[in-house]
Amino acid sequence: MSVPTLKQYETVKYSRIYSLGAARGDLTVTNDDIAGPIDSSDEWIRQRTGIITRKRASENLSLMDMAVAASNEAIEKSGIKPSDIGAVIFSTITHPFQTPSAATMLADKIGANPAPAYDISAACAGYCYGIAQADALIRSGVAKYVLVVGGEKLSDFIDPTDRTISFLLGDGAGAAIVGPSDTPGISPSVWGSDGSHWDSVGMTASLLDFRDGEQSWPTLRQEGLTVFKWAVWEMVKVARQALEVAGIKAEDLSALVTHQANIRIIDELAKQLDLPEHVVIARDIVNTGNTSAASIPLAMHALLASGEVKSGGLALQIGFGAGLAFGAQVVVLP
């Protein structure tokens, strides 16, 4: 008896981002609002972080609410139907359940049920990890359209007295529809991790420590200077490598959209990359704060909405954070 030949996925040559969606927290939190418990001031916070206000979600606005709003906008702009979505990838570190994933609930709420749906945990690199996966799923033929969401309600995991990271953080969700393309729209990804710095950004305690009464509610913390050093000088290498594998030069870019960690990191990265003046540098952090996995799609969405960059231009996006995890790629702006 002869063994029949199996069918395998038929591959697709290129992929691109079709559209973006964005949702930010409903509260505008000023530096004065949060300066007291960290014995600081508006001036100190602005000088060290570039943040003037950050967006945070009120008690009535959940991570899922923001993810649904951002996803619906992206789906509507893409021209595809929710039922066409072949996979939902949700990057978040603030979904408050160990299981089930946030992605399955999101898929159901936006009309993409029964698409495969899963969360990824790569913190501030999460959106770029999601785009890398979406690109691979589409070009390998596993899925035709993929919804990638980076969303966080970080304000559930902050300590108002923490001077290392809490005052930077905001809430929001950004979404992208990724699909097949006639022309290249997403470069090879440069992504990776360095677990030797596992404890330089993360939580103050595990949930088990909390359960056992050994620690209070876990909140975010970082070793700021170690992270700053890594985020600038190691990420410059990653950014250069991303340009190289994309086959382009810095002057070909329309925009640099980094994870919105801190304006000092963004500016130093841009300086080290020696970008020509026409390259727009995303500084959404000024009025949104640091929203971890959401920050890149939110910043890119803002640049497109303001008209500072045009659809069809090239943007280098680079995410980096807890893990330490990093991811970068050059994309054609939707």
């Binding site: 060290r48 200077l225 600038v232």
Partner: peptide, 11 residues
């Protein structure tokens, strides 16, 4: 000189 500038100087 603040700590972030100090780190830049160190590198």
């Amino acid at each position: 000189i603040d700590s972030i500038s100090m780190m830049t100087i160190v590198v």
